[in-house]
């Protein structure tokens, strides 16, 4: 493969801090990788873990989840609730053997345009090294074949 792999990465971000931070990266003309596209939520508290699952199912190779720093939430506590949710969700994924390194969790404030750009580049590079996310696709073919094969031979 001569061409380098370009991962698809979805970013789930809150409107008030990270989205504004990403806007700031724009107004400061900070350059970063094109691989990440943002989906805007009012708050990290709004981000449903099922959306992350759906993103992977639909071909995302990596995910960024980012919102306001602790104590800076526009809605006072949405990010605190989100943090607990991610602690639990991440440990569930890990227990199921899912590669949690494909999800970057971060706090990026409205003033941290440079941090956002760095986060995008760093995540893109990490996912690029990991290669395409195929676990779900494999699930749909190989595992099922194996099981049905086992079932037949029994």
């Amino acid at each position: 493969m001569s061409e380098q792999f370009e991962p698809k990465i979805v970013a789930f971000v809150c409107n008030w801090c990270t989205y504004a931070g990403a806007d700031l990266a724009g107004t400061s003309r900070t350059k970063y990788a094109t691989n990440v596209s943002i989906i805007r939520f009012p708050c990290t508290g709004r981000i449903d873990f099922m959306l992350l699952m759906k993103a992977f199912e639909n071909g995302a190779d990596g995910i960024i989840v980012s919102g306001c720093h602790p104590n800076d939430c526009h809605y006072t506590s949405g990010n605190f609730h989100a943090r607990r949710r991610w602690i639990v969700f991440r440990s569930l994924l890990d227990f199921m053997g899912f590669d949690t390194d494909r999800i970057t969790f971060s706090w990026v404030s409205a003033a941290e345009g440079a941090k956002w750009a760095g986060l995008v580049d760093e995540t893109t590079q990490r996912i690029r090294e990991k290669g395409a996310f195929t676990d779900f696709k494999k699930l749909d073919c190989s595992t099922f074949e194996k099981i049905s094969h086992d079932a037949i031979t029994e």
Binding site: P42, C43, G45, F49, Y75, G78, A82
Partner: peptide, 8 residues
């Protein structure tokens, strides 16, 4: 205020 934490 529309944060949506309850929704998730």
């Amino acid at each position: 205020q529309g944060c949506g934490t309850c929704v998730a």
